[in-house]
Design a protein around this nucleic acid. Sequence first.
DNA 1: GGCATTGGCGCC
DNA 2: AAAGGGCGCCAATGCC
Length: 596
Amino acid sequence: MHRWLENALRGAIEGVHVLAGQYVAYDMSCIIATFPDLEELVWETYRVGGVLCTSIREKLLDIAIGVFPYPIDTTGTKTKSFYSLADIARVSLGMTVSKGEDTWRTRYSELANVPLGKWPQEAIEYAIRDAELVSLILENQDERALGLHYDMPTQFDDVRADFALRMMSVWGIRVNTARVSELWEDSMSRLHEIAEQLVADKVAKRTKPKDEPPPGHMPMPAIQRNMAAIRELIEQTYPGTPPQTPGGKTSTAAEVIEECSDPVLIDLVEFGKVQKVASTYLTKMFEPLIHARFDAVGGASDRTSCRDPNLQNQPNVAGIRECFIPSPGHVFVSADFDSQEMRTLAQCCLDICGKSRLAERYQADRHFDPHLEFAARLAGISVEQAARLLAEKNEDIKALRQQSKVCNFGFPGGMGVDTFVHYAKGWGVEITPDRAQELKNAWFEQWPEMYTYFRHASNLVDFEGMSGVMIHPQSRFRRGGCTYMEISNGYFQTLAAHASKSAQFEVSRRCYVEPESALYGSRPVVFVHDELILEVPEFAIHETGQELERVMIEKMEKWTPAIPSSAEAKAMRYWSKAAERVVDAEGRLTVWEETS
DNA sequence: GGCATTGGCGCC
DNA sequence: AAAGGGCGCCAATGCC
């Protein structure tokens, strides 16, 4: 087995063949677990592009024609597919394949020490059929790709990311469970207090408990909200007519409720917030080592996703992130791309419009701050003056920079003025619709290329009727069935996704199998779109941080060749959004310590 | 009781 | 002409 695998890997590295499978990252991680001496060969096979994954290819094809994640099967029915081998066989080949637990799929460990000659016939047949299916699907995918004139150019990058993310998942991330317990108990006492009040106020009733509490801990109060009563209360106390949901019902969003200033409703909002944190996040954190699962092609934009639990949407407040800790003897070193989507937008504008002021500004200064530059325009002062005021912590320029930032985040996606007012509120920026219009006008003057950018997006949609096809100028990644806004967003979001994934793979590769690298021996533990967190031996913080920045920038600039990039490393003893970059007197990266 | 949808909210 | 997008997960609710 070992010899056969070694030859298979070497053959793929030499280009004699490629290795293909359904979710190959799983198989490859198992190979490494079983034969650690093959690890270098596995990484090298990925590096040279010797691996194909039917699941990823299927997603890319579905994205290209705009049906992801609900493909149309061979009978013409729109189905929800999870891109398992059985799903793909059913949807694309029209074959019925059982994937239940009654099959051998998950039972081969029973045969670990059984010689092949003594394997049950069904176990052998299942394995052979599995390989045959992969082969049939590959062929079918090639035919469909040919029909689209689309060779899935990002598939190797996606497959590499899939593997690196799988390795991250296997490694896991550690949790300070004592701290989780404290947070849980605090939350539960508060929830019980509010629950009692809500029941007395008749906006909720007691129900039977649903889930077992974590062992040795207080249970979650078992109540059910009376949404009809709550909507009625909102309608009575909201100043004016309360906003409605698309379904036509009165919105019960926290933002709406806060306008009511009714004590019962305020309790309800607090209950909701505490309950959300406890049930969504804390319940998953009683394990000392968590293996969240990442999906390399989680969305139609080629972004990743994460689940069980989702480490990509951990709350910034409430001390949740702070429960994640490195292995003993290690610290976290994290780095994120500076204004990643502004830079990918600049590259896209250059590619699509031919000219971009945003691009020119980045080309003039790698550390260009697009938010400050636009704030200076809004203030009617020079950028130098604005920078000086900001350094002096001038409140006016800080507020304008915040407004500017919201513009730069919202408007590139095609956001309208009314939505912008609402969106800005979420960023703590209160503005009138008139001011929003003023900002939007000024924003177009700031980045004049955006007129052309939006016209291009609009043309793509109009020519096709209701939906358009986005073909990325840098990657040739194709996404069909797009609305105007999906295209406006898609260009820069997708390019950022490509860049982050490439960086994530290369950083991981060096961590695992590149002894010459300062990253060697460190382990990636979290990936959050534009941010990478590693656990690093405490003595190696500075060198690791430096190389992490270098590799991220180098990989990013492969996707934004006309735009310089920037990434900054920080070191911390636990995951925290509050952490800052700290350097000692010699300019060496050191651990941030909280000073409260 | 199980399943799917809606509304809402956490993050980038 | 005008139009934020991308996720995962939870509670409530509607449907079978």
